[in-house]
Design a binder for these strands. Structure first.
Lengths: 332, 332
DNA sequence: ATGAAAGCGCTAACAC
DNA sequence: GTGTTAGCGCTTTCAT
């Protein structure tokens, strides 16, 4: 690998002059510019970004933390972030946490180590205080997440309202026995807490019962959804729910899968409400009624906010496009 | 930010001793170990990976190039690669090319600049010679891709054979007028060339006709598939194909979508063969008959091969799990 | 306008 | 076992 030294030697100039050329410093004579260009071409030289970063500390990399890239919600979110980041010449380093606190810390440490210059967290595992403390090293933006009692900038949709509307939609369609899935646990703060609040609000408002048999915690995958359905249909008919509000289309598809296999009819035997409006949910055996998340806007605004923060500038998040909407199809 | 110097000063030791501790050098007295630990905690010290990389040149980052992370084939492939990379403590830097040669070059340049220590290319755009030349800087492994006339290690499945079997399957099911989709163009080398060869071989063997109206080039997305279907059903009935072999489930879903919308029946009006066996293809309105790709094995073997190359060791790819298999469902 | 020289934070001989 | 020292490739004063 040719270094700046080699270029300087070949062009018969000092290292500093070459460095200035590289950094587009004004006032370098045309003659020397040409000599440098030639030397660089001859030696096939590329600056070592490692050395540049070491010295100047201004890298151009942002990190994204997602729980699982195979979840289309996240892959589309990453896609949106990357498209926006590219505009400002940032590269993107993606890491999956698999809900593992340790992996999250590894990424946060990269902030400290200047591997990344900012981080968008689309999933959070560790304690709010711990995460907050890392802001000392570089900006962090929470995307589609919210942390209480600490101050970390975020861009979010109104998950409480979205869920509230979704449940209300179900009730108005005359479903009264509503099962509910959440990725978290009901007790602990975090994961889906706001959605659960929206769920409760709608139920209370419509004076409907809660039944602990209808609440499913820590469900994430299609397989989890499948297992939830299995449990539901094992319930005696009189206490079996007539609709299920899932926390993602992936989970909803698991429920659907079980019902198809057992020859149950959607929505007659059980209505299914998805969440995310993922691609292909309109072409399923029963097209899914679901809640659309504004992924594009979420990714774009988070990125704009983060890059502004990196450049120590202000940015007002445009909230106009961050609305959740119900997509009505056949499963409800 | 505290540096190794600060730690040394605080612990009242030399920089080297601290460095040795950091690098798990044997034989450091327990007393000093403790002093170093305390100093590190007190100063909240983390080594700068930039400096470490500059000095030792042994970063721990591998790059992955995919065309679009939103394509489940790639997100699952990335997932498999990441899981394997983690075992050897490598982090993973993902970049999307969007079939853009320029983005690809940007990633290749990162090889030069030591940002990444190896690259897995799950998609290739530029000229074989250009890509080959970058091996000078760090190892490159092609995953699910093949380049002629140059020598770049790769791990692949037999796409020709897979397609040949797929088309033969169609013919044996008594479909004789087979439409064919490819991501590339028929003339130029690259993109789907081997699959096209498999297609041709099966047709010739079974003495079936080619019709240029049945060939669709440069189709990638669900929307492309939708448009292909539209064209097919505009054809006069006597020259309309009775089956379509698509190049991905995404495309197949587009075809399905159009047919549902227009009230055509799958497979009676047109049989659809997918490619990839993506999640949820079994729960579609018409469950998709498709070709399963061994994504797990592809990712795992590519990563093992790349890391071996980085460490200048030999590795023999385990080909036993790299087989394409037909998944028979309802669309054929 | 250009060059010399002092580091950035770390590792790795080499010496003791 | 531990300290001293010379860089890694680059940027950035400070001279000239």
């Amino acid at each position: 690998m040719a270094t700046i030294k080699d270029v300087a030697k070949t062009a018969n100039l000092s290292i500093s002059t070459v460095s200035r050329y590289l950094n587009k410093h004004p006032y370098i004579s045309e003659d020397k510019k040409k000599r440098i260009k030639e030397a660089m071409k001859k030696l096939n030289y590329t600056p070592s970004s490692i050395a540049t970063q070491l010295r100047s500390k201004k890298g151009k990399m942002i990190g994204i933390l997602v729980s699982r890239i195979t979840n289309p919600f996240f892959s589309y979110l990453v896609d949106a972030i990357e498209k926006q980041a590219k505009i400002d010449n940032y590269n993107v380093l993606i890491m999956q946490t698999y809900d593992d606190k340790y992996a999250e810390i590894k990424m946060l440490e990269m902030l400290k180590q200047h591997v990344i210059n900012g981080l968008i967290m689309c999933s959070v595992e560790g304690s709010p205080q711990m995460i907050e403390s890392y802001q000392e090293f570089a900006p962090i933006v929470l995307c589609n997440e919210q942390l209480e009692q600490v101050s970390i900038p975020n861009v979010i949709t109104d998950q409480l309202e979205g869920t509230y509307q979704g449940i209300k939609f179900l009730i108005e369609k005359n479903y009264k026995k509503i099962a509910y899935c959440t990725g978290g646990t009901l007790n602990i703060e975090g994961h889906g807490k706001l959605r659960t609040e929206g769920f409760e609000r709608a139920l209370i408002e419509k004076k409907l019962d809660f039944k602990k048999e209808w609440i499913f915690q820590e469900v994430h995958t299609t397989k989890d959804g499948y297992d939830v359905a299995k449990k539901i249909f094992k319930l005696p008919k009189n206490i079996r729910p007539d609709a299920i509000f899932t926390n993602s289309d992936e989970v909803a598809i698991g429920v659907l899968e079980y019902m198809i296999k057992q020859n149950f009819i959607v929505p007659d035997d059980l209505a299914i409400m998805g969440f995310d409006n993922q691609p292909f949910t309109s072409v399923l055996a029963t097209p899914l009624t679901t809640i659309n998340q504004p992924i594009e806007a979420l990714g774009k605004e988070s990125t704009k906010l983060l890059i502004s923060l990196i450049n120590k500038k202000l940015y007002n998040v445009d909230k106009s496009k961050l609305k959740l909407t119900i997509i009505q199809r056949k499963s409800v």
